[in-house]
Computed example of a mutant assay.
Amino acid sequence: MKKWILITTATFLTLLTLLLAVGLWGYQQLQQFRQTPLALTTPQELQLQHGTSFHRLGQELQQHGWLPYDWRWKLLGKLQPQLTAIRSGLYEVSPQDTPESLLQKLVAGDEKRFSLTLVEGKTINEWQQYLQQLPHLQQSSQPFLAVLQQQGDDSAKAEGKFFPDTYQYRAGTELTTLLTQSYLKMQQELQAAWDSREQGLPLESPYELLILASIIEKETGRADERRLIAAVFINRLRKGMRLQTDPTVIYGMGEAFNGNITRKDLQQETPFNTYRIQGLPPTPIAAPGRESLMAAAHPESVSYLYFVSRNDGSHVFSTTLAEHNRAVDRYQRRRK
Rank of each mutant, 00 (worst) to 15 (best):
E300D: 14
F317C: 02
P299C: 13
D312F: 07
V316P: 00
S301L: 11
I285P: 00
R310V: 05
E323F: 02
Y304D: 12
P288R: 01
S292P: 00
T283A: 00
L293C: 04
Y306S: 07
H315M: 08
H298W: 05
D312Y: 04
G313N: 06
V302P: 09
V308C: 08
T319R: 10
A287N: 09
Y306N: 09
S318H: 09
A297R: 13
P284F: 02
A297Y: 12
G313A: 01
F307R: 03
P288T: 01
H315T: 03
P282T: 14
P299Y: 14
Y304E: 10
A287S: 15
P284V: 03
M294D: 00
N311P: 04
S309A: 12
V316R: 09
T283R: 00
V302H: 12
L305D: 08
S303T: 12
E291V: 11
F317S: 02
L280E: 06
V316S: 10
P288H: 05
V302S: 15
S318N: 09
S314H: 11
N311G: 02
N311E: 02
L321D: 14
E300G: 10
E323R: 04
V316N: 09
F307W: 03
P281N: 14
G313W: 04
T320S: 15
H315P: 07
V316M: 10
L305M: 12
V302N: 10
E291I: 09
P284Q: 01
